[in-house]
Nucleic acid binder design. Structure first.
Length: 442
RNA sequence: GCCGACAUAGCUUAGUUGGUGGAGCGGUGGACUGUUAAUCCACAGGUCGCAGGUUCGAGUCCUGCUGUCGGCGCCA
């Protein structure tokens, strides 16, 4: 890489007294005709560079004076530790403008735009997402996001899970068919996948422990702070495992994410205003498990109208999680509320062996999973009772005809976890280019 | 699909009972040798989302449309 010095290192005092060559972008500039202060940023931070006309000469001074916000520059100078506001600054000796910014089209993301957004998103910022990415708020979020992805990979790889890829073009649905994106496919219809699950189950007898992180697509017209039409789905599938064991992995991976963020991204979390003690709690606590029936009783005792057999929608989740200080598992939903691939409870076939993990602070569901229906007879019974056509699922049924075994897995909404752990207001803040029912650009 | 808001300069906005649209930031020019969202002076920048209607007169009132935002249902 044609770059030797990083602003983060300058700021941490690694280059005090040294001559350095900074490569970055102009963040802010102010000053007079004789002295100017240029705040330069790179991917590691910001530093103030002091430019004096009599030191750098007229040509260099003028070129920096005319450098608008987001001009790319190479600046050479001496690092000085000072008592001033930011601790370290660079006394400039030479500078070069690399990519100028045309004054007729100045950088459109302004302080006022950011203030109004108040950490969130406005239409303007969404339209200018490609430029908004380089603001400190988005940069910080993208670093946190990277650590979340890394923590998920580490969790599974450390436990000998095999990363496995499923197709994105599929013929059948995992969830209800109404939320499928239909795409033309050489004169036929195909759909974008909603989950790798069905294809993961096909590989389960081969790999036994497998996971993925991949985009899933759902054509939900949802307008909420926790829905995207394209979201990143971390999924795992494990052979010979019960609902309970799958839940242990769900808890394990979420706690590992929280711990990783505390270890690697505390500064970033704090700069977003996140209370680290909450993240500590999510990393260190055990996640309680309650059955659907208990949840319904709790809700009824709080005066919420709910009938047994209803799925728990977000408004009910919110009431339920209001008293929670840590994520909670909700288990044993009524069979009628869940799709065919959930395995009925052998102890009471009214229920299925499933779980959702609900995040506190009103963030809601982040994991859905459970044991799979694994015998041929049972899967056919479940598909038929649901009224789902068998044909697109022939391959899925076939898996059960050759040595079916108990198995299970879960899907985790990675963007939701980023949103929750970073304390963001909206899932859009946690992904670089959010897609929802009204936006596919930029 | 349903419910509720909003739309004024590049951005953020003010605009009273209807009477020729103001400001801050950003930009340009100028002053200033230690500024921290620097400050001060000046200039440029507007089809008030679109289409109708009411009126002597509409940014303001009415109708429709479009777009955006928030929420619900569904989910990760």
């Amino acid at each position: 890489m044609g770059k030797q010095y990083w602003i983060g290192d300058v700021r941490s005092g690694s280059h005090d007294g040294e001559t350095v060559e900074l490569k970055g972008w102009v963040h802010r500039t102010r000053g007079s005709n004789k002295i100017r202060f240029i705040v330069v940023r790179d991917s590691t931070g910001h530093v103030q560079c002091v430019v004096k006309r009599d030191l750098v000469g007229d040509e260099c001074f003028e070129s920096l004076k005319n450098s608008l916000i987001e001009t790319s520059v190479v600046i050479r100078g001496v690092v000085e530790a000072t008592d001033r506001e930011h601790g370290h600054e660079v006394q400039v000796t030479e500078a070069e403008v690399i990519g100028p910014v045309n004054p007729d089209r100045p950088f459109p993301i302004t302080e006022s735009a950011m203030d109004e957004a108040d950490g969130g998103e406005t239409e303007f910022l969404l339209d200018n997402r490609h430029l908004y990415l380089r603001t400190s708020r988005m940069t910080t979020m993208l670093k946190i996001r990277s650590s979340v992805f890394g923590a998920i990979h580490s969790y599974f790889r450390d436990r000998d899970f095999i990363e496995y890829q499923a197709p994105n073009f599929v013929a059948g649905a995992v969830e209800g068919g109404s939320t499928l994106f239909e795409v033309p496919y050489f004169g036929k219809k195909a759909y974008l996948t909603q989950s790798w699950q069905l294809y993961a189950e096909a590989a389960m007898p081969a790999l036994e422990r497998l996971y993925t992180m991949a985009p899933s697509f759902r054509a939900e017209k949802s307008r909420t702070r926790r829905h995207l039409t394209e979201f990143w789905h971390a999924e795992m599938e494990i052979a010979w495992a019960s609902n309970d064991e799958v839940m242990q992995h769900g808890e394990g991976v979420v706690r590992n994410i929280a711990r990783t963020l505390l270890d690697d991204r505390s500064e970033e979390l704090e700069s977003l205003g996140r209370d680290l003690s909450l993240v500590e709690r999510y990393a260190d606590s055990e996640y309680p498990r309650i059955r659907y029936d208990e949840a319904v009783e709790t809700l009824q005792s709080k005066g919420v109208e709910i009938e047994w057999g209803q799925d728990l929608d977000y408004s009910k989740e919110k009431v339920l999680t209001a008293d929670f200080e840590v994520p909670h598992f909700l288990t044993h939903y009524p069979r009628v509320a869940k799709p065919f691939y959930h395995r009925p409870d052998p102890d009471d076939a009214k229920y299925v062996l499933c779980h959702d993990l609900l995040a506190p602070e009103g963030y809601g569901e982040i994991i859905g999973g459970g044991e799979r229906t694994w015998s041929e007879d049972e899967i056919l019974e479940r598909i038929d009772e649901e009224g789902t056509p068998r044909e697109p699922y022939e391959f899925y049924i076939d898996i059960r005809r050759y040595g079916g075994v108990p198995h299970g897995g879960f899907g985790l909404g990675v963007d939701r976890v980023c949103t929750w752990l970073a304390g963001a207001d909206h899932i859009r803040e946690a992904i670089p280019f959010p897609r929802d029912s009204r936006r596919v650009t930029p």
